[in-house]
Design a binder for these strands. Structure first.
Lengths: 169, 169
DNA sequence: GTAGCGTAGTTGAAGGCGCAACTATTCCGC
DNA sequence: GCGGAATAGTTGCGCCTTCAACTACGCTAC
């Protein structure tokens, strides 16, 4: 994880067999680990809170949210996958499970015989409405309550900067 | 995921059935989504790069790194789990698989008959040495090359602030 | 109109992970 | 020293995710 084997393997890494590896210096290491550990821990915490208190994983929650925010509360599978940062396959499995819960149903797409629409049911919407306050409170507690307004601004700036790079694969 | 059902359910959420939910405002939403999506995408990208180019997942990589950085290249299972931000169970499964690859071996702890030591083998160390340059380059490309020095500083500050909160469960 | 290619989505197998139950060992009070 | 609680670690099960293969439909050109 930590990109810093040189300190543990000084002799071997001095050789630099790959040519010139741009190793991280001490400050970069520290920034990298802080970012990595905090995002892992925070995601884990938020997901656990949500799952344990509502029975809805963060992945499912995201699907319900994305559907709830479109008019008609329905989306093509592939659009839904994109918005959820999910692979098609993963979404397909997940929607099958949400169908079993009665929260989503599939419907063939009228415009395109290949397509499927995922439609949020009233039960699904109700489940989302029940879960949302719990999740918001969790995000407040573990994220916003810990940060100054300036830090929130920095967080947004960082995130958007990285997204500009990551969004185009 | 996005904590923002109110806009999709204005009527219902006006009721505020939970008392007073501290919903996110537009700026907070934006900061939250930027943080969430960028960290999801970045972790995904780094993990995929590493897995596809070296056959070592980020989780395995972290285990190897932590072992490589201790003298004797060995750690108690529970210490290793803590350093990898892993549950005991998860680590136990993972070490079993690393044992099958011949990269780690288990050894009963001399001080404590209940304990096990995970020991990094020479083959494991060699695998880590081969993977490290690839991973560093990936972290450079997708993270540090995208950020100004000020942004790196902000990233560290943010991460460390959040860790102070998250580290004590 | 049909061959061939691209797109949309699904499926099954294999591996990763969390949870709860389990074994084995140590620690503590008496 | 012995009974019970606490600690260390493992394991089986079930769910989730990925990958590759697959079906089904649409699009274009001929």
């Amino acid at each position: 994880m930590t990109v810093h084997v040189s300190s543990a393997a000084p002799g071997a890494s001095d050789e630099d067999p790959m040519g010139d590896v741009r190793w991280l210096d001490v400050d970069e290491q520290r920034a990298w680990r802080a970012w990595l550990y905090s995002s892992l821990l925070l995601q884990d915490r938020l997901d656990r809170d949500l799952t344990h208190e509502t029975g809805i994983s963060h992945a499912y929650y995201e699907i319900l949210v994305q559907l709830s925010e479109t008019e008609g509360r329905m989306l093509r599978m592939s659009q839904l996958a994109d918005r959820c940062l999910s692979s098609r396959s993963r979404l397909s499995h997940a929607v099958s499970r949400l169908e079993e819960r009665g929260w989503v149903r599939r419907q063939v797409c009228p415009d395109d015989g290949r397509g499927q629409l995922a439609v949020l049911t009233d039960e699904g919407f109700a489940a989302l409405e029940a879960a949302a306050p719990i999740h918001v409170e969790s995000v407040r507690t573990h994220l916003f309550d810990q940060l100054s307004p300036q830090q929130v601004e920095n967080m947004r700036d960082l995130g958007e900067t990285l997204l500009r790079h990551l969004d185009r694969p």
